[in-house]
Simulated assay, not measured.
Amino acid sequence: MSKEITLKEIYDRCDEVGTCWIWRDATTTGGYPIIKGGGRCLYVRRVVAELNGDAPAFRQPVITTCGDKLCCNPLHVETSTTAKVGQAAAKRRAFSSLSRRMKVAAAKRASPSAKLTMEKATEIRLSTKTGKELAKEYGVNLSVIKGIRQNRMWVDFSSPFAGLMR
C-alpha cells in the first residue's frame, strides 16, 4: 500500500450514511471502491484494513460487517476467509439464481470437451431405451443420463417452462 493514503483522505471521499462511510469515488466494474496510490489502483477496504493494523494477506478477502460493499468505515471493515465469504454467499442464495445457472450451463456447453448437445439431451429425454443403453450409446456416465431425465442437467433455458420441471 502507498503510505500517502490516510483515513482522512478516504473519509473525505465518502458520504456518512448512518454509521457507514459510503464511497462516492471510483469503483471497479463489480462495484468495489478503489483508490489510486503508489501509481496503481488499490481496493479501498484493503487499504483501510492495513491502516487499522490488520493487513490482509495476498488474495485474502476484506469484508464489511454492515454488508454494504461501498462502506469504508474502519469499524465495519475486517479481514475474512474465502470459506466464510462463500458460506455467506450461499446463505443469501447467491449461487442458485436462474441467471447464474444459465451462465454456468452455457459455459459448460461451449466447452470443446462436451460430449452432448441440447438436441442429444432432448433425444435422451424422449427415448424409451434404458439408462444403461443410452449411457453406452452417447459415451457418458449413467448419472448424466439420469440427471438429464430428471431435468437437473442439460436444462433448456430457452423454454419459459424450464424451471417448472424441478
Rank of each mutant, 00 (worst) to 15 (best):
Q60A: 05
R93H: 14
M165C: 12
S2M: 00
A135P: 03
F58G: 00
R45C: 01
V62N: 10
D12M: 06
Q87Y: 04
D68K: 10
D54P: 04
L164F: 10
G131Y: 08
K146W: 08
I148A: 06
D25H: 07
Q150K: 14
C66E: 00
L116S: 11
L164M: 15
A26N: 10
V104W: 02
P56W: 00
N52A: 14
C41R: 09
E50D: 12
G30L: 04
T28Q: 12
K36W: 06
R24W: 05
G163D: 08
A57Y: 11
Y138L: 03
L70Q: 03
M165A: 15
T28D: 10
C71A: 05
R92M: 15
K69N: 11
A89Y: 02
R152M: 06
I63T: 08
G39M: 04
I148T: 07
R13Y: 03
A90V: 06
S127Y: 02
D15S: 11
S2E: 01
A106G: 11
N52I: 03
S159F: 06
T28P: 04
R101D: 09
R152S: 06
V155L: 06
E123W: 03
K129I: 00
M153N: 14
K91H: 03
K3E: 07
D68C: 04
I148E: 09
A89S: 10
V155S: 03
A88P: 03
L164K: 11
S113L: 15
H76G: 08
C71P: 07
K146F: 09
M1P: 01
R152K: 14
G18L: 01
W154L: 07
C71N: 07
A89P: 02
V155G: 03
I34Q: 13
T128A: 04
F161R: 10
A107H: 13
F95Y: 14
M118S: 06
G38N: 03
R101N: 11
D12Y: 02
A114W: 02
L7T: 07
C20P: 02
C72S: 11
G18R: 02
S143V: 12
R46T: 01
R93W: 09
I63E: 14
C14M: 00
R93Y: 12
I34D: 02
P56F: 00
N141F: 07
E133C: 05
W154Q: 06
L142R: 15
R125W: 05
G139N: 08
K115Q: 08
G147E: 01
R92T: 15
K132Y: 07
K146A: 10
I148N: 14
A105Q: 13
A105M: 02
H76P: 04
K136E: 13
T65V: 09
T27F: 02
L116D: 08
I5F: 03
I35Y: 00
K129V: 00
V140D: 05
A106P: 06
G18K: 00
G39C: 09
